[in-house]
Design a binder for these strands. Structure first.
Lengths: 409, 409
DNA sequence: AGAATTTGTTGTGCGAGTCACGGGAGCGAC
DNA sequence: GTCGCTCCCGTGACTCGCACAACAAATTCT
């Protein structure tokens, strides 16, 4: 969260520098590489100011000077030097906790996945067991990190409700977890003390798609995630919509059909009972223990069955409610909705067009994730990197160097 | 909209001053009067900086020095001088366009209603006719304004969909308007050229309740407005949720009962068909032409009928979907929902508790508007005042002095 | 090859907030 | 009543960040 959203505080010169340095880094992070001239026009600051900021970033070891990038201006004039994320710069650990597997990656600024590992996770496993597996994956992934590179933090994507204030997992239905302090568990298993951020997988999917996926330059977007549960991550005004407790986006339990099937939440006919993984599995006669691989199974289809087409219509109709409520510019369909939309896109579009109001409908686009199924993972990297954009100097000061040594000791 | 939300730009010193001056004014505006010491601790700036800012505000004629306010610190020590909104300071015109009447007020900083007038409006009247009535009311209300006081702008609350980019009224079902540039119509009728801002009534209700109503210090709130249509204004992270086009918050057409009554939007069983004014009027045998006064009629009841109780349950159940989606800290029930909640609050609460998820439910409070039925009007004043908080000097420079003279000439 | 264009570099200046000091205004104790 | 305490105001020197201007450097165009 950028400090600018804290309303009411004044700004002093120290804050300017922090903000400008962080904003510059955010730009370089977003584009991977840019020229100083681009930065000058993007940020609206003087050339010499940009030069000073870039110099500070270089002296921090975050960025390095590069030859002018490819897509640079054509024409006369001295070419502008490039600013590029440093090879041995700071990095974060991203964890995508799925229902049946955990993916862990070491991710550098610019969103580059430097190392990656994954392992199956016992469904309904105890939290400490899962924590131990994740810790082991983290050890693997940190193996080849340069000894000088600093670990800024760990970001974890969770399929469930995460409390914003402290990252407690309030409820992860498909892991059968309840009030689990998973961040603490992982840190304890590692024996490290670094900042850990947890958030809902759909929220992080939205964040990643906004930063470097299908929704770059789109400040109003919703990432609808079909995992075993159905959830949404909302970005509005370029910021995550979190809600008071951090639970915003629970679209799975929208009232859809009051005479429908009972839902595990206690109501009847929640949207999830129509478009959730179990409903779809039933529609395609998929055995219940394969529900976690629903996306792959759907990818195997080449022609949709009538039942699947009905599901597509229900998906579109539910999306209509969401479009009416949030008036997004883009809706990204993640998880198995990606596969489903590929199959029955026409039905989804029709359901949406029939049930949404004309005004919000005209400005919305349905899209597939630009990052494939990595969106939540890269979103986890983004929240872990966030402190660097708020205050690069402070975040780097708090970061951990020689992680391998510390893990060994 | 505070400039801080524009991400990506750098900050220079000029922007600091603008921001600090605007933020200081926003604080004084919110509290009406405060001491410099309070401002110092609120804004986290140095005493002398605050003194400089306050001095600038005074020299602009916006604020004036006052004796220490009542609620000041008790005990030893020199009392801190007060900062108070100036009597003859800048003001705005706020317009609340209802289905059957228009209310116009002259509102000063601090939210003080200085003058007020209203007139019935012909339902289904032509836009230019309504514009002429509103212009006449504005002339009345400007009558006694000090000749030195500056008019900063006009804010208009509209019962319909307003396009964010240019304030065009895309659709106001109950006025039967369609793509009406009402701001231009009013300005033409006045023969003035001042900034005009238009927004949806529920959005403005939320804004006003957030600034000086029931939801002060609540950064996640939803104002649910029952007028002839049902809409919502959402504030999240302290900012209005507008959506891509400005149409966010259309909760009236949430899918509620797919086998229900047909809705004018083309679907069946939208929430509005269950809790909208026409549904309630039917439930209490109120003649259709009195629908606009539904709140007063409901206030006349002392015992709710079973039909009304069922409506209360439906209201609560629909609110549950909203609470699940937005995870607000407070839901304010405006319009006739205020009267309805007073009658059948128990049913509303029960419907909400039954259908909302536990996590979002535990942090939400239902509340009545702290500003009564004036919320949209005062919200209209707030958007018109907004430029003053972004850049007081510029906004005052663009403001109009001697309005009466200009209107006469 | 020279002009035109665009950018990097350097030094100067302005402006905004901070800091430190002296003075002022109430409160409370003796 | 006076003194001390506490908190605040007001003023001037100080620091730091950005803007500006002039010059140097690196290309492209003619």
């Amino acid at each position: 969260m950028s400090p600018q959203r804290r309303t009411g505080l004044g700004t002093n010169q120290e804050a300017i520098r922090r903000h400008n340095l962080g904003t510059l880094l955010r730009h370089v992070h977003g584009a991977g590489q840019m020229s100083r001239a681009e930065l000058t026009s993007l940020m609206g600051l003087n050339r010499s100011t940009i030069a000073g900021l870039v110099g500070e970033l270089e002296s921090l070891g975050i960025s390095e000077r590069a030859t002018p990038p490819e897509g640079a201006r054509q024409g006369a004039g001295r070419p502008s030097a490039g600013v590029r994320i440093a090879e041995d710069g700071p990095y974060v650990i991203a964890v995508d906790l799925g229902v049946d597997r955990a993916v862990v990656a070491r991710v550098g600024l610019g969103g580059r996945v430097l190392q990656r590992a994954q392992a199956p996770v016992h469904s309904h496993g105890e939290a400490w067991q899962v924590g131990a597996s994740v810790a082991a994956l983290i050890r693997t992934v940190v193996e080849d990190a340069p000894i000088t590179a600093a670990l800024v933090g760990i970001g974890i994507s969770v399929p469930g409700l995460v409390r914003r204030s402290d990252g407690l997992i309030r409820l992860a239905p498909n892991l059968e977890w309840h009030d689990v302090s998973f961040g603490g568990i992982v840190l304890a298993a590692l024996g490290l003390d670094v900042p850990v951020s947890l958030a809902n997988d759909a929220d992080l999917g939205a964040l990643a798609e906004h930063t470097r996926g299908a929704a770059v330059d789109t400040d109003e977007l919703i990432y609808v995630s079909g995992n075993v549960g159905v959830g949404a991550g909302v970005i509005t005004g370029g910021h995550r919509l979190e809600g008071a407790g951090g639970y915003a986006g629970e679209i799975g339990h929208l009232r859809f059909n009051p005479n429908g099937r009972p839902c595990h939440c206690g109501n009847r006919g929640c949207w999830e009972t129509e478009v959730g993984a179990h409903a779809i599995a039933e529609a395609i006669n998929c055995p219940p223990d394969k529900v976690a691989q629903l996306d792959e199974i759907l990818d195997g289809f080449d022609k949709p069955s009538p039942a699947l087409r009905a599901t597509g219509t229900a998906l579109g109709q539910g999306l209509a409610s969401i479009v009416n409520l949030f008036n997004p510019q883009m809706v990204v369909l993640g998880g198995y909705f990606r596969s489903l939309y590929t199959l029955v896109g026409a039905e989804v579009n029709a359901g949406l067009a029939d049930h949404a109001l004309p005004a919000p409908l005209e400005s919305v686009t349905l899209a597939l994730p630009g990052l494939g199924s990595d969106s939540p993972l890269l979103g986890a990297a983004e929240i872990a990197l966030e402190p660097l954009f708020v205050d690069p100097v402070a975040a780097l000061g708090a970061a951990l160097v020689d992680v391998r040594g510390r893990l060994a000791g």
